[in-house]
């Protein structure tokens, strides 16, 4: 029953394949702990770009640097959209959001007393214009804008198949549904670049399959670039165009899923020195 969407969710002006995000020698320290020790990578428009690595490798730190929550001590994070390239390192998070970078969080960070619909509408914040005075009057332009964005929000609700829960308070929903709503809220920003931090963590295989399908839909039908952190190797190897492997804040592997799977350093990081010859593949599907 999903109807065709009138709106495209992609907020990027780049052509598919153009370089969208360049992370250049990013260094992030917390006191004596080095979270990122000079990481560089390049994300192209239209990719599904996965970041993998053991716990504490610096994956989430890298995402937090990109969305402005952490400020790296060294390095540049260059983002291209609307025909200009900007360094994100010294920008506050809300301005980075306005440039078209949306994200979800590892531990769900929804507005949990709001309804699903309000969460998604809150995601439209940067695209809406109503100011406080016209909002208080709820007249004319303010009402028209609310209705127009309600329509847009409903398209996202259709896409993610959460029609039945649209008026429920988010805090009362199951974990899997909350993850889906969080994806919806990020999509409401019409992102040029979508950062997903473990969107499938803690899900059963059916929910994982659904989530993978939504991620693929968003990427293939709307052309939204996706940077994905995920521990489920099956999903990562299946849907990624490019995979980067981090370990102790360093990049130890970069390439297609096939290349990364056979990279000896990656295998060593995951399995330890002794099992150097073992293929990553053999353990990744065992769990």
């Amino acid at each position: 029953m999903t109807r065709a969407m009138e709106h495209n969710l992609n907020g990027s002006t780049l052509a598919p394949g153009d370089v969208q995000l360049i992370v250049q020698e990013v260094m992030l320290r917390f006191g004596g702990v080095t979270a990122l020790a000079g990481v560089s990578l390049e994300v192209r428009q239209g990719q599904i770009f996965s970041i993998i690595g053991p716990n504490g490798a610096g994956k989430t730190s890298l995402l937090n640097c990109t969305s402005g929550l952490y400020r790296p001590q060294q390095g540049e994070i260059l983002f291209s959209n609307h025909h200009q390239t900007t360094d994100l390192v010294h920008m506050p998070p809300y301005r980075i959001a306005k440039m078209g970078i949306a994200r979800s969080f590892q531990n769900i960070e929804l507005f949990k007393h709001m309804t699903v619909l309000d969460n998604i509408m809150a995601g439209c914040h940067v695209h809406m214009k109503t100011n406080i005075l016209s909002g208080m009057l709820y007249w004319g332009a303010a009402q028209r804008e609310e209705i127009a964005f309600r329509q847009f929000a409903e398209e996202i609700i259709d896409l993610l198949e959460i029609e039945a829960i649209r008026k429920q308070t988010v805090g009362s929903l199951s974990y899997g549904l909350q993850k889906r709503v969080e994806l919806g809220r990020a999509l409401a920003m019409k992102p040029a670049l979508l950062l997903l931090d473990e969107p499938m963590a803690g899900m059963n295989s059916e929910e994982k399959e659904d989530m993978a399908r939504f991620v693929l839909d968003v990427n293939e039908e709307h052309g939204v670039t996706i940077v994905l952190i995920e521990h489920d190797m099956g999903v990562v190897m299946d849907i990624s165009d490019q995979v980067v492997v981090l370990d102790f804040g360093r990049k130890i592997g970069d390439g297609t899923p096939e290349e990364v799977r056979h990279n000896p350093e990656v295998v060593r990081a995951y399995l330890g020195e002794d099992l150097e010859q073992t293929e990553l593949k053999s353990f990744s599907f065992s769990s």
């Binding site: 506050p92 507005f111 909002g135």
Partner: peptide, 24 residues
């Protein structure tokens, strides 16, 4: 029930997420 009010409630519920959604 409009944009600014939702931003207020978003700040109450989850201020970091609100900032990442573009709310100053």
């Amino acid at each position: 029930r409009t944009r600014v009010g939702r931003a207020f409630v978003a700040i109450r519920d989850q201020d970091i997420a609100a900032e990442v959604m573009g709310i100053d």
